[in-house]
Amino acid sequence: MGFKLLSKLLVYLTASIMAIASPLAFSVDSSGEYPTVSEIPVGEVRLYQIADGVWSHIATQSFDGAVYPSNGLIVRDGDELLLIDTAWGAKNTAALLAEIEKQIGLPVTRAVSTHFHDDRVGGVDVLRAAGVATYASPSTRRLAEVEGNEIPTHSLEGLSSSGDAVRFGPVELFYPGAAHSTDNLIVYVPSASVLYGGCAIYELSRTSAGNVADADLAEWPTSIERIQQHYPEAQFVIPGHGLPGGLDLLKHTTNVVKAHTNRSVVE
């Protein structure tokens, strides 16, 4: 069995187990497998329904001669939608809004960016022009300005110390501490036991640490421990890039980060 097929099978099995364990909360999309990078042309966006009122959005972007996937989250909030992270750029984010209108038909009224990198804030200006209120932590807003990236308009308070959590509509926002970046936030959907790890969490097929220019490698494993301790009931975990899975993604990420750190020390 090929690795790609095995990865998709694991996603399907995880979703099936969740649907059985929580039949009222989960209505997993039966329309197909989780979209992969090879299936999404740059400039297009796919939506994948995880649970009743919960979707991931998947886009792709060219970077350094390669094409990478990027995940975000959409959560229903009454007759409105909360968006977590842009679709990595203005063109993708405009396509995301169009796809949401086509498939869901509810307005996106608020959006949260989970850290300051372009795959999370690139497209904020498109959201703002569409009347979406954009939010991020003060740290993310400051770092985005320093980096020359787009800056969300509103500040999220109460997320300055490791372990801080605040309720934001249908989700809980959690600051686990520094990891992929010093400002990275985690998003949890309690009604569906869905954990969105953003770039602080890796997919299972990833074996290298990737972009760690703004990471705190020493603190990252401790931050992941905080996530595990705060959300032990999480059933569906979405990484910032690639295929979702279960809580095993947290341990896998820790292993990859520690291996990278150990290699760096040896070198």
Rank of each mutant, 00 (worst) to 15 (best):
I58P: 03
N92K: 13
P41Y: 13
H241K: 00
A213M: 12
S155T: 15
D125P: 04
G105K: 15
L143C: 04
Q103D: 10
P239I: 00
L9H: 06
G43T: 05
S264G: 08
D85N: 04
E225M: 13
M1C: 03
A15H: 05
T261K: 07
E219M: 15
V265S: 10
S193V: 06
P152W: 02
D118R: 11
I17A: 05
N92M: 07
E233F: 13
E80Y: 14
I201R: 02
A259V: 11
V124R: 03
L83A: 10
N149P: 06
D29G: 08
E267K: 15
E219H: 15
Y34D: 10
F236V: 06
A179G: 11
D164A: 11
G122V: 07
V75D: 03
A218Q: 15
D64A: 09
T140R: 02
T140P: 02
A129Q: 15
P23S: 08
S139H: 13
V237W: 02
G245L: 01
V256T: 08
E225C: 05
P138R: 09
S137G: 10
A133K: 14
R263L: 07
Q229F: 14
D248G: 10
P107L: 07
I151N: 05
A51F: 14
A213N: 14
K251G: 08
A165T: 13
T261Q: 06
A94W: 13
E39K: 10
V45N: 06
D79M: 14
T140I: 03
Y175M: 09
G240N: 03
S223P: 04
G198H: 02
D183L: 01
I104A: 02
S30N: 12
Y135T: 00
A178H: 12
E233D: 11
R120I: 00
L81A: 12
A25K: 08
Q61A: 11
Q49W: 08
V132L: 05
G131A: 10
N149T: 11
P35G: 10
A165C: 11
V42Y: 14
P221C: 13
Y12T: 12
K102Y: 09
V189M: 06
L47C: 02
Y231H: 04
E80T: 12
E267W: 13
P41V: 12
I58A: 08
L13S: 09
L82E: 03
G89L: 04
S30R: 08
V212I: 10
A87N: 04
Y175V: 03
V146S: 13
P170R: 09
D164V: 07
Y12M: 11
E225V: 12
H230C: 04
V75M: 04
I227V: 12
I186T: 05
G2Y: 14
G148Y: 14
D118P: 10
R206Q: 11
Q228R: 13
D52G: 10
F168I: 14
Y196D: 01
F63L: 09
Y175K: 02
A234M: 13
T222L: 13
S264D: 10
H180G: 00
G2W: 06
A66K: 10
L249Q: 00
L106A: 14
G65I: 15
V237T: 05
Y175E: 01
A59P: 03
K8I: 15
T207V: 10
A66V: 09
P107D: 08
I100E: 02
L195C: 00
A259K: 09
L185G: 02
V28N: 15
Y135L: 02
T207G: 11
V54H: 00
H57Y: 04
Q61M: 10
H154V: 15
P69C: 06
I227A: 11
A192I: 05
Q103M: 08
D79Y: 15
D77K: 05
D216Q: 12
L6P: 10
R263H: 05
G32Y: 15
Y196C: 02
Y135R: 00
R142C: 14
P35E: 08
A111G: 14
L217V: 09
A25L: 08
L247S: 07
G2S: 10
S38E: 08
A136T: 04
L250D: 02
S264I: 08
Q103T: 14
L243P: 04
Y231T: 01
S113D: 04
F174D: 00
L47Q: 03
A136S: 12
Y34H: 12
L217W: 12
T253Q: 01
G2N: 15
A259P: 06
V42A: 11
E150D: 12
H180Q: 03
V166C: 05
D29S: 10
V256I: 12
N255Y: 15
K8E: 09
S155Q: 11
E33T: 11
T86P: 03
A178N: 15
I74Q: 01
V108D: 02
D214C: 04
L13Q: 08
N211Q: 12
G148R: 11
G123F: 01
G89A: 03
L156R: 02
E267D: 14
G163D: 12
R167Y: 06
G53Y: 05
V45H: 01
V132T: 12
K251T: 08
R263D: 10
H180V: 00
D29F: 08
D77W: 08
R46T: 05
V265P: 15
G65C: 03
R128D: 07
W220E: 01
G198R: 03
G78H: 05
V237N: 01
L97Q: 04
S162Y: 15
T153Q: 15
A209V: 11
F116H: 15
S38C: 13
K91Q: 13
V126F: 15
H230A: 14
R76I: 10
Q228C: 05
I151V: 14
G89F: 02
S162L: 12
D77T: 06
A21T: 14
A95D: 09
Y34A: 08
E225Q: 07
L73C: 03
A129S: 14
Y135A: 01
V212R: 13
L127E: 00
H252S: 06
E225N: 11
V54M: 11
V126N: 05
W88Y: 00
T114M: 04
F236T: 06
A165R: 13
R226G: 05
A111I: 04
H252M: 03
G122S: 10
V75A: 09
T253P: 00
L204Y: 11
G131V: 04
G197W: 01
E44M: 10
A165H: 09
V124G: 08
A144L: 13
T207S: 08
S22A: 11
N262E: 06
A133E: 10
P69L: 11
G122H: 10
R141V: 10
H241C: 00
V126L: 14
L82Q: 04
S205F: 13
K102L: 14
P138A: 14
A200W: 02
N184Y: 02
G2L: 08
R263V: 10
V75N: 02
A15C: 09
H57I: 00
L13G: 10
T253D: 01
E219T: 11
D64P: 14
P23D: 12
V121I: 11
L6A: 09
N92L: 06
D52W: 12
A215Q: 12
L24T: 12
I227W: 03
D216K: 12
I50K: 03
D64Q: 13
S38P: 10
S208L: 12
V54I: 13
L5R: 13
